[in-house]
Lab assay of single mutants.
Amino acid sequence: TIEDAIKKLLKLAQKGQPYTFGDFTVTSEEEAKKLAKWLKKQL
């Protein structure tokens, strides 16, 4: 689910690992949080 993807994304971001989700490449926890907010709006 999208919720699971968001959780995984935040965990990876906390470890400092870049994470690619579709067109987004997230390289920081701050970016992960922005992406998570955006994804929730898409639901």
Rank of each mutant, 00 (worst) to 15 (best):
I6T: 00
K8P: 01
Y19A: 08
A13K: 02
G22A: 09
P18I: 12
T1P: 08
A5E: 08
K34V: 05
A32I: 05
L43F: 07
A5R: 08
K34E: 07
T27R: 06
A36F: 15
T1E: 05
K40S: 11
K41F: 08
K41H: 08
E30K: 09
E30P: 03
K8E: 08
Q42M: 13
L39T: 00
F24N: 01
K41N: 08
E29T: 10
L12S: 06
T20M: 08
E3A: 10
T1M: 09
K37N: 08
A36D: 01
K33Q: 08
P18H: 08
A5Y: 15
I2E: 01
L9P: 00
G22K: 04
K7G: 03
L12Y: 11
T25N: 06
K7I: 09
L10Q: 02
F21R: 01
S28Y: 06
K37D: 08
K33M: 11
F24V: 04
K41W: 14
G16C: 15
L9I: 06
E31L: 14
W38P: 00
K37T: 10
T20W: 13
K8G: 03
W38R: 02
A32L: 10
K34I: 07
K33H: 10
G16V: 07
T25A: 06
L9A: 02
K34A: 10
T20A: 06
T27S: 06
K15I: 10
D4F: 06
K41E: 08
E3W: 15
K33L: 13
S28N: 10
K7Q: 07
K11H: 10
Q42I: 11
A32G: 02
K37A: 12
L10P: 00
T25W: 09
W38I: 02
A5P: 01
A13Y: 07
V26P: 03
T1N: 08
K8R: 08
L12G: 02
T25D: 04
T1V: 07
P18S: 07
L35K: 00
A36I: 14
K15Q: 10
T27V: 11
F21S: 03
Q42A: 11
T20R: 04
L43M: 09
F21Y: 06
K8A: 12
L39S: 00
Q17W: 15
P18G: 07
K40V: 12
L10G: 01
K40L: 14
L10A: 02
S28H: 02
A32W: 13
A32R: 03
E3Q: 13
P18C: 15
G16L: 13
K41C: 12
D23E: 09
K8N: 07
Q42T: 08
A32Q: 02
A32K: 02
G22R: 03
K8W: 14
T20H: 05
L12I: 06
Q14D: 06
T25K: 07
K11V: 10
Q14I: 13
D4V: 04
G16M: 12
Y19W: 12
E31V: 15
Q14G: 10
E3F: 15
L10N: 01
